[in-house]
Measured scan of single mutants.
Amino acid sequence: NDEAKKEAEKLWKNNKSEDEIKERLERAGISPDEAEQWLQELR
Score class of each variant (00 low, 15 high):
Arg43Asp: 03
Asp19Thr: 13
Ala4Ile: 13
Glu3Gln: 10
Glu36Ile: 06
Trp38Pro: 00
Trp38Tyr: 08
Ala35Cys: 13
Ala28Ile: 13
Ile21Cys: 04
Glu23Arg: 09
Ile21Met: 01
Lys5His: 03
Lys5Val: 04
Gly29Met: 00
Ile21Arg: 00
Gly29Ile: 00
Lys5Gln: 03
Ala28Gln: 11
Glu34Thr: 13
Leu39Glu: 01
Glu9Trp: 14
Asp33Cys: 11
Asn1Arg: 15
Ala8Asn: 02
Gln40Trp: 13
Glu23Asn: 06
Arg24Ala: 15
Leu25Ser: 00
Ser31Pro: 12
Trp12Glu: 03
Lys13Gly: 06
Glu26Leu: 14
Glu36His: 05
Lys6Tyr: 07
Gln37Leu: 13
Ser31Asn: 08
Lys22Val: 03
Ala8Thr: 04
Ile30Pro: 00
Asn1Gln: 13
Leu25Asn: 02
Gln37Lys: 13
Asp19Leu: 12
Glu36Thr: 07
Leu42Ala: 01
Ala28Val: 07
Asn1Val: 14
Lys6Trp: 07
Glu34Gln: 13
Glu7Asp: 08
Leu42Pro: 00
Ala28Glu: 11
Pro32Asp: 06
Arg43Tyr: 05
Glu34Met: 14
Gln37Tyr: 06
Glu26Thr: 10
Ala35Asn: 00
Ala35Trp: 09
Lys13Asp: 05
Glu20Pro: 00
Pro32His: 06
Glu23Gln: 10
Lys22Asn: 02
Ala4Gly: 05
Glu7Phe: 12
Glu18His: 08
Gln37Trp: 04
Leu25Met: 06
Arg27Met: 14
Lys10Ala: 10
Trp12Met: 03
Glu26Gly: 04
Lys16Ser: 10
Ala8Tyr: 04
Lys13Trp: 13
Glu26Gln: 11
Asn15Phe: 08
Asp33Ala: 12
Ile21His: 01
Glu3Lys: 10
Ala4Lys: 06
Glu41Tyr: 11
Ala35Gln: 07
Leu39Thr: 01
Gln40Glu: 11
Leu25Ile: 02
Leu11Met: 15
Arg24His: 15
Ser31Glu: 06
Asp19Gln: 13
Glu7Gly: 03
Asn14Phe: 07
Gly29Val: 00
Glu26Met: 14
Glu23Asp: 10
Asn1Met: 14
Gln40Thr: 09
Gln40Phe: 08
Glu18Phe: 11
Gln37Ser: 10
Asn15Cys: 14
Ala4Val: 09
Gln40Ala: 13
Gln37Phe: 07
Leu42Phe: 14
Lys10Gly: 06
Arg43Asn: 05
Lys10Asp: 11
Lys10Arg: 13
Glu26Phe: 14
Lys6Asn: 07
Gln40Ser: 11
Ala28Asn: 07
Glu9Asp: 03
Lys16Gly: 12
Glu26Asp: 08
Ala4His: 10
Glu9Arg: 11
Leu11Glu: 04
Leu39Met: 07
Ser17Met: 04
Lys5Met: 06
Leu25Arg: 00
Leu42Gly: 01
Arg24Val: 15
Ile30Tyr: 08
Ala35Ser: 05
Glu34Val: 15
Ser31Gly: 08
Ala28Thr: 04
Leu11Gly: 05
Lys13Asn: 11
Asp2Lys: 10
Glu26Cys: 14
Ile30Arg: 00
Lys6Gly: 04
Lys10Leu: 13
Glu41Ile: 09
Ser31Trp: 03
Glu36Trp: 08
Glu41Pro: 01
Pro32Phe: 06
Ala28Gly: 07
Lys22Asp: 00
Glu34Phe: 04
Ala35His: 02
Gly29Gln: 00
Glu9Ser: 09
Gly29Ala: 01
Leu39Ile: 12
Asp19His: 08
Glu18Arg: 06
Ala35Lys: 00
Ile21Ser: 00
Asn15Asp: 06
Ser17Asp: 09
Lys13Ala: 11
Asp33Pro: 03
Lys16Ala: 15
Asn15Lys: 06
